[in-house]
Nucleic acid binder design. Structure first.
Lengths: 241, 241
DNA sequence: GTACGATGTTCCAAATTACGGAACGAATTT
DNA sequence: AAATTCGTTCCGTAATTTGGAACATCGTAC
């Protein structure tokens, strides 16, 4: 499986290059490639015979990941309604380790709109969806995610300096109390409102967000989003079980 | 890896149920689950301890599958431009076995619009994207895909009766000559135009499509799409290498 | 409250499989 | 023409997997 993930990073890639990256004997890597090929997870690259690339086998799994108890099906109709009511882009995201993954998106009909790539990832600490999900997790788990996220962010280009853990905890308490999170720090000029979707036991499953360009983030619109979003998220939570 | 795929289908699922489905000893399945868990491909289901569900590890791969030579990055700006010029929904799809997989989507700004779920699959024989891709494959390969697709469709609810292989071949020749495919048979009330994106050696990589509700599919709009789409697909093909 | 069925887990010896160094052929570069 | 790089094959050793059986745990029915 490590070979598979490395092929994903380096594709199209041959045996020797892989072996060098993995610091493993060529023979072992060769065998792994044969196995992955037999199972149709990889195939020879277009027009080549000895370099490999991914097939779409992984994508069939990916569609099912994070779809616990029919999340996508439960969420889409309510997302559609929310888009009608707000005319803004609606995102559905789940938490993976210390990152937010976008699993569904409905775009705003406006000409100026906020669009994230499908399947894209975003930092948990600076997004409305991320903070909404953290707001209903217990302290230990928040601390764990916080540490991993800070470590990861310090290695990449800093989007914004992460808040202290104490400041974050205070903000999360506030978010939990009022039922929604907001942010502008992830994408400049985008104002986002996020609310959490929970399982029957109140554990966080996913988060829903409304994203609007800063120019349209009037007090009236902010208030509208803050009012509608928690209700929509709540409806999805109830439809899950 | 078979266990992994079965977990995807049955999640959340326990050892015994899996073993029964796979007709394998419980012990072997148990070991596979342990391994997958250690590698973070699965985790205990939310609020449970002995049933398993997928993590998002597969999604990281899925994003890279079908992204040969930076397809997504090359395609997006041109897709944006195409949306501006047509005001209709633009889809980017690739071929997986005998199905079309949607890997990127930009929605029409119109209130009435055609929306497919992200990562969704569609039959190759009845979609514009599918036929566009087939149109630049050689006869043997088309026949192979045709047979598999017919076999698969016969098991599910028939969307439309598949054409004969000869009729298909004739249509593909026409599509290849004029540079674009059209269809209305996949989704009723949706008129789609598709064109193929090729590698340097003219092998098909992906397909681009413009989808419009039947009501807006006027002769003028059809002509506009038929004119713009092959150019856009061609531009993406050239940017790939 | 106890018996039952279903489910998850552990153990262990036999047998299969993986391991990886070395050698080889083919393709490309010097 | 020699040298390097790359993919592939071979093979004895060694480690791992295998799966039946026993055990543990949970929920349920009587």
């Amino acid at each position: 499986m490590v070979v598979l993930e490395t092929v994903a990073d380096l594709q199209p890639v041959g045996v020797s290059e892989l072996a060098a990256h993995l610091k493993q004997p060529k023979t072992s890597v060769q065998r792994a490639l044969e196995t992955l090929h037999e199972a149709s997870w990889i195939r020879p690259a277009v027009g080549e015979r000895t370099r490999w690339e991914l097939t779409f086998r992984a994508s069939r799994l990916a569609r099912k990941a994070g779809n616990h108890f029919g999340l996508r099906e439960a969420a889409l109709p309510i997302m559609e309604q929310l888009r009608r009511e707000t005319n803004e882009t609606i995102h559905l995201a789940v938490l993976d380790d210390f990152e937010i993954v976008l699993i569904e998106r409905l775009e705003s009909p406006h000409a100026v709109r906020h669009v994230e790539p499908l399947g894209g990832r975003a930092p948990v600490l600076s997004t409305a969806t991320g903070k909404a999900m953290l707001s209903c997790m217990d302290g230990d788990e928040v601390a764990r995610v916080y540490n991993e996220a800070v470590k990861a962010e310090s290695q990449s280009v800093a989007v914004a300096p992460p808040p202290s853990l104490d400041a974050l905890m205070a903000e999360l308490a506030e978010i939990a109390a009022r039922g929604y999170a907001t942010t502008t720090s992830w994408r400049q000029d985008v104002f986002a409102t996020g609310a959490v979707i929970v399982a029957a036991d109140r554990r966080p499953i996913a988060a829903l967000s409304v994203s609007t360009p800063a120019g349209r983030a009037t007090p009236e619109n902010r208030a509208l989003h803050a009012q509608l979003l928690p209700i929509a998220a709540q409806q999805i939570s109830e439809h899950l079980f």
